[in-house]
């Protein structure tokens, strides 16, 4: 008896339809004159809030005015000089240990204007669950790292790093070449499963603030 894999592949080959061309994904996609403004507008619609900070000091000033930050007992910050970290992650050996975190201040790599999504990965955090398990999430994104739409977002992720000589197999490297977790996060956790009534804070963060930090700072 052939293996299930061979069996399925055989069936697929037998039932293979006529060839159909793979289209190029290219178009004059909608762009925005002020992508940060578009991002902020959409983020508000999905229950989050965007902040623009000129410097780290300015950002800390903004943070101190956030009620969720002011009352937080356990704060994790993995963004240098931003917020006051009071949880020593090096003493936690299982992601379950982060369940006590009230506010997590974490890095976001870039933002997408059309849908207020921020790309995050587990490269800069010891536990990826921090993005989802904390009570309140604050993402800090360099202000110049913003794209208009999802096409540009994926093109950016699939851009090769230009260092194939550094790899053993000679493959081009992109964001997905190595084991990695990455997510687009747009707004706080939410549900509308009870009579389509929107409830913010389903299982994950009850709030999301995205801070754009000017790169000159």
């Amino acid at each position: 008896m052939p293996s299930s894999k061979d069996h399925i592949l055989q069936l697929l080959r037998r039932n293979r339809p006529a060839a159909a061309e793979l289209p190029m994904v290219a178009h004059a996609w909608t762009t925005f004159a002020d992508p940060h403004a578009k991002f902020a507008e959409v983020l508000e619609l999905v229950g989050g809030r965007a902040i623009r900070a000129k410097s780290v000091d300015d950002l800390n000033q903004h943070l101190s005015q956030l009620p969720q930050y002011a009352v937080a007992k356990k704060v994790v910050s993995l963004v240098p000089s931003v917020g006051t970290n009071n949880v020593d992650l090096s003493t936690i050996d299982s992601p379950h240990g982060t369940a006590v975190v009230d506010v997590a201040i974490l890095p976001g790599e870039f933002a997408v204007a059309e849908n207020a999504a921020v790309w995050v990965t587990d490269r800069q955090v010891p536990f990826r669950v921090l993005y989802f398990l904390c009570q309140h999430l604050i993402l800090v994104v360099p202000a110049d790292q913003i794209v208009d739409h999802m096409h540009a977002a994926y093109e950016r992720l699939m851009q090769t790093g230009g260092q194939p000589q550094g790899s053993k197999d000679g493959r081009q490297r992109n964001d997905f070449s190595e084991p990695v977790f990455g997510a687009f996060i747009s707004g706080p956790s939410k549900t509308a499963d009870i009579e389509q009534t929107l409830v913010i804070g389903a299982h994950g963060p009850r709030s999301l603030v995205v801070c754009f930090l000017d790169p000159t700072s």
Binding site: V42, L45, V46, V112, E114, N115, A116, A117, F132, M150, F176, E178, P179, V180, F181, G182, A183, F184, I185, S186, G187, P188, S189, K190, G204
Partner: peptide, 12 residues
Amino acid sequence: QPITTYTSHFHG
């Protein structure tokens, strides 16, 4: 919605 809140990519 313009995108789901969480769009998670698992590679390995």
